[in-house]
Design a protein around this nucleic acid. Structure first.
Lengths: 186, 186
DNA sequence: TCCTGAATCGGATAGTGTGTCCGGTAAGAT
DNA sequence: ATCTTACCGGACACACTATCCGATTCAGGA
């Protein structure tokens, strides 16, 4: 549930504020230390108002996640290698580099597990589609497609996490190359 | 801090009880729903007694983790392919198959993130050592050892997780083979 | 066996956070 | 202008945490 158009202005404003409060707070403290009280204080919104829109703190987080995954998908589509790779990683690495503050807070070993999992799910789905496309095109692999997809998505996240954790010691292009090399056999 | 020898019998008994209570409860409900009250009820131990030994619930969990990682290491050492692979996976897959209830509760998408991370850390360290050994033996790789280690550990966990989540549709041997194939270029 | 110190009990307590409720108010929609 | 809906804000019941302390039990050495 991203913020939709056909709602009362007040509703949009409130959701907007809460989302902003969350991202702003995530930058300051670890996610699980954030309380609902913190959120409504920062958003300057009444307590009951929060619960009128979201069940829990996690709910608010997940609501905002759509944008993240959509963004990821979007940037992966721009990748010049999108055609031949199961998961075109260059666009993703570039996107992560551009938004590294946000990405570091959300993904990575100090990130939020919920987000991490959501990202993996999105990537797995994409990988699965690419694999099916390939096999429809006549490519044969002895490995089960599910496992290949899980591997492709998981190992990409592993590299991305490592990269973010280590302050991005290489350019996005190098990372994409690394990923391609490491998963060449898949 | 595993349960050590040189302590008062009562201390050992208490810790033993609490550890048992935790593992037993993990089998019944998700880890984050478990409260300290649940633990001391199940262990039949006073509240203050719990806090005399552990700071928090996580503390208790982490204390018991040593055994898990040591077990993993142990079983990986028994692996016949231990010599030539960066991470010998067969022993691990077999060990996971034998204790699949426990492993499913701890690792995997429905598992406990803390445990997952601890396992990755242990594997990464092991992989790092193997890589250093190789490079000392004259092997050259264009990829940074840190990244290789993170990739080896992470992708092994990905496969293990996928395997456990999907009710182990293949024997451990097949999984180990899969892992070897998928990471052949590393 | 007896004694001493340590561990445990158990119940009280302060503190924090959650989630719900409701009457009153303010702001949007038509 | 009026009707509708969202919001406020404070109160409330509840759950869980973490600490404390006097009383009790128990382990292990003399």
């Amino acid at each position: 549930m991203t913020i939709e158009e056909g709602q009362d202005r007040r509703v949009r404003r409130t959701k907007q504020r809460l989302q902003a409060a969350l991202t702003s707070l995530i930058g300051e403290m670890s996610y699980d230390k954030i309380t609902v009280q913190d959120l409504i204080d920062r958003a300057d919104v009444g307590r009951s108002t929060f619960y009128a829109h979201y069940e829990t703190k996690d709910d608010l987080l997940i609501s905002g996640l759509d944008r993240l995954t959509v963004d990821m998908e979007l940037h992966m589509a721009d990748d010049p290698s999108a055609a031949d790779a199961i998961l075109p990683s260059l666009g993703l690495f570039r996107h992560a580099a551009e938004n590294h503050e946000r990405f570091r807070a959300l993904i990575g070993s100090r990130g939020i597990d919920l987000v991490h999992k959501a990202a993996i799910d999105a990537l797995t789905e994409r990988a699965r589609a690419a694999i099916d496309r390939r096999s429809a095109a006549g490519e044969h692999s002895s490995l089960p497609p599910d496992a290949r997809a899980a591997f492709a998505a998981g190992s990409l996240m592993v590299l991305l996490t490592w990269w973010l954790d280590n302050d991005m010691p290489y350019p996005a292009e190098t990372m994409a190359d690394m990923y391609r090399q490491l998963t060449a056999t898949a």
